[in-house]
Design a protein around this nucleic acid. Structure first.
Length: 285
DNA sequence: ACTACGTCCTGCTTGC
DNA sequence: TGCAAGCAGGACGTAG
């Protein structure tokens, strides 16, 4: 699933293969892909034709291509890919939008099986698209304020994993890297955010940044063909995951078997020895 | 402002 | 074998 490292990998691919080129035409093949562009598919396509793409940017799991003072904003959802390739190749069943370029070179395709992802044009959004102003900076940005994050996190009355998935508190963390960072920081996912000491927060932030850096270095995580790099190659980080998706396998640190627990109709993976369930119930803390 | 939950979507896996 | 239920889950709208 695309989280910050995967989106950053895609951003780098777009920077290399799309930035600086001029869009010739846009085809929206599924209207749901531009559902957040309220003016509709035709307006979306017409507004982008003939315009030059600037340097790709990213905040958290969102990425955007500046176009003049505007922005083409993208979110990959669960299964979205941005793929660059030979414009003559066959158009597969999950291609939701296609961009051709004035130079006649490789085209750009937004492919998304589960259609949770979307594209939209954000007028005046080159610097920061209005649609994502409510999202907090991600921990790899200079704008991220560790002190502010620590204060807001400790003021919350919820479990720490739930807080990490709240993009208005910290952006870029999803289910996979939340579990991996919590494992690295030796914190249980349901520990009360209000019970964290400042040194716990520091250790957690360091763990998030480290796992992000490792994953970006590996080109992102991929479990299947749903996520691929912008040039079609899969990432290689999945083999480095310590706990996510590995219930019943030994913890890489202590050998205890990794467990999977229900969490928000989803899953939380952890090592029951390295990450002790908090003694005090967080709702009583 | 904060917290929790249901919803959107498709394809693969599991269970009877 | 067939079919239904379960599962994956990011972000948003709504309710409290």
């Amino acid at each position: 699933m695309p989280e910050l490292p995967e989106v950053e990998t895609v951003r780098r691919g777009l920077e290399r293969h799309v930035s600086g080129r001029t869009i010739a035409s846009v085809d929206v093949l599924h209207p749901r892909a531009v559902r957040r562009h309220l003016a509709g598919s035709e307006d979306f396509a017409a507004a982008l034709g003939g315009r030059r793409v600037g340097a790709a940017r990213r905040r958290g799991k969102y990425l955007w291509l500046p176009i003049g003072s505007d922005a083409l904003l993208a979110h990959l959802g669960m299964s979205g890919q941005l793929v660059v390739g030979d414009p003559g190749r066959a158009i597969g069943p999950h291609v939701r939008a296609r961009f051709t370029f004035a130079d006649g070179g490789p085209d750009l395709r937004f492919v998304d099986q589960r259609t949770f992802g979307h594209l939209c044009l954000e007028p005046g959004g080159a610097e920061l698209p209005p649609a994502i102003r409510h999202i907090a900076p991600d921990p790899l940005e200079p704008a991220f304020d560790d002190d502010r994050f620590a204060a807001r996190l400790r003021a919350r009355r919820t479990g720490i994993k739930r807080a990490l998935l709240d993009q208005s508190l910290i952006s870029g963390v999803g289910n996979i890297y939340a579990d991996e960072a919590l494992w690295r920081a030796r914190l249980h996912w349901d520990k009360g955010s209000g019970q964290l000491r400042r040194q716990d927060v520091n250790r957690l932030l360091a763990a998030i940044r480290a796992v992000f850096a490792d994953a970006i270095g590996a080109g992102g995580t991929s479990f299947d063909s749903l996520y691929v790099r912008v040039n079609g190659q899969s990432g290689y980080f999945s083999r480095s995951l310590a706990v996510y998706g590995r219930q019943g396998e030994p913890c890489p640190r202590c050998g205890t078997l990794v467990i999977r627990e229900k969490f928000m109709n989803r899953s939380a993976y952890s090592c029951p020895r390295c990450q002790r369930r908090p003694r005090v119930r967080r709702d009583l803390a």
